[in-house]
Design a protein around this nucleic acid. Structure first.
Lengths: 219, 219
DNA sequence: AGAATTCATGTTGTGCACAACCTTTACAGC
DNA sequence: GCTGTAAAGGTTGTGCACAACATGAATTCT
């Protein structure tokens, strides 16, 4: 009943696919996306695809220029730092604005994330880490019933997701994985204690630390 | 050099026009917007207009249904309350995240807003009040250099702007005007003291009070 | 009379052809 | 060799015709 609309579900599918490719650097900044090529790949015409690209442009992931092309945006270090500042604050708000009561289901999910992280420790992989991080982020926003807060957090997340991946080559993958797993562990313990605010604070603190690491390796 | 693109500037113009009409209740919730009629009014074809409507749908102001129409969304009291919660927090953040130094220019603007408010005191008018409030909101967001914070604040503002106007008939116009002018006064004094954080706190407090008034008159 | 059905009407979604535009390249003039 | 210019190729933006769909009214059958 929710996805009865064929057009809407296709739109969401294409949007998600392209957004993931951009955030995972399958399309690095500067890549020119051809409407016709993409339309052919997804088996549709340019018209529906243009709507997807328009939304990606609204979200700041691409920019279309008449006669030139649709180009994946570059990440401006200064603006990304500001965006991270806001993301940090929103992460803290998840614990205060309409937090969902911590259920056994939620604790189970957190445990699963921790297990997945531990596996990654033994076999480090940049992309797998990035994907797990993305899934875990969605789990984090699901801890509030404030829809607007979820929406804004996700919007900002996707805008900054690439910066970490671009910096990764200069960072230590094993170290980054270890740091992430320790966040999962802290978060899990907070949730076991049924303390949603503590879980949000864990997240907030780790975003702060991430900002610091990025600053250190940028300058 | 910024708006050299004809298509983009037209898009922004149409988007702003329709958004204003929706937020000012020229198009009350439930109104069906005809793509063809609007296209004719703005002297273009459906294609560029559809992009505008698509963005309005992303912003949650309308919803398009195949074969039915594009309908102005209704405001859900519960979700609006949550959105106001977030708006309040963001208003406070304006004073903390990359605040712009308070300049003479800014103080002058605040003084102008206060004057305009005083004029409105003698001749109360719902729409004029709403428009002044909208202008003043933009002034408020301009007090931070954090672009993401500005963007999210505006996005949420336009989503909640209608709730106040729909409640106005049940509120006291003269009282609402007086409250708004007192906010302008407090804000002006904070800025004269070159205290941007205080100005943000004034805003934050008034949003809290507005939430309380709306709750009182809803239930 | 009532109910199911068909049809007429109006709406959004899609595909296609063409216009507007930018970039690059080839070429002619100097 | 250099520069200015024009032409070619490729890209996004626009307009239009038609498909897909939902709704309500007219109609027909029971």
């Amino acid at each position: 009943m929710s996805d009865h609309s064929d057009a809407r579900s296709r739109f969401l599918r294409l949007h998600d696919a392209l957004r993931t490719r951009i955030c995972m650097l399958d399309y690095p900044p500067g890549t020119r996306l051809s409407e016709e090529t993409l339309a052919a790949e997804f088996g549709t015409s340019r018209t529906p695809l243009r709507r997807v690209l328009a939304r990606l442009e609204d979200e700041g992931l691409v920019i279309s220029q008449h006669g030139v092309g649709t180009i994946v945006t570059d990440v401006d270090a200064e603006e990304m730092a500001r965006t991270y500042d806001l993301r940090r604050e929103l992460a803290g708000l998840v614990g205060r604005l309409s937090p969902v009561p911590v259920s056994d289901e939620i604790i189970k999910e957190a445990a699963d994330f921790l297990d997945a992280g531990k596996i990654l420790l033994k076999q480090p992989d940049t992309r797998a880490l990035a994907e797990l991080n993305m899934d875990y982020f969605h789990f984090g926003t699901s801890l509030t019933n404030n829809l607007a807060l979820r929406e804004m957090s996700e919007r900002l997340y996707y805008r900054t997701a690439r910066i970490w991946l671009t910096a990764t080559p200069r960072l230590d993958l094993a170290e980054e994985t270890a740091i992430f797993v320790s966040e999962l562990r802290d978060s899990f313990q907070a949730l076991v204690a049924r303390d949603g605010q503590a879980a949000a604070d864990v997240r907030r603190a780790h975003i702060s630390l991430c900002i610091a690491r990025l600053n250190r390796h940028m300058a």
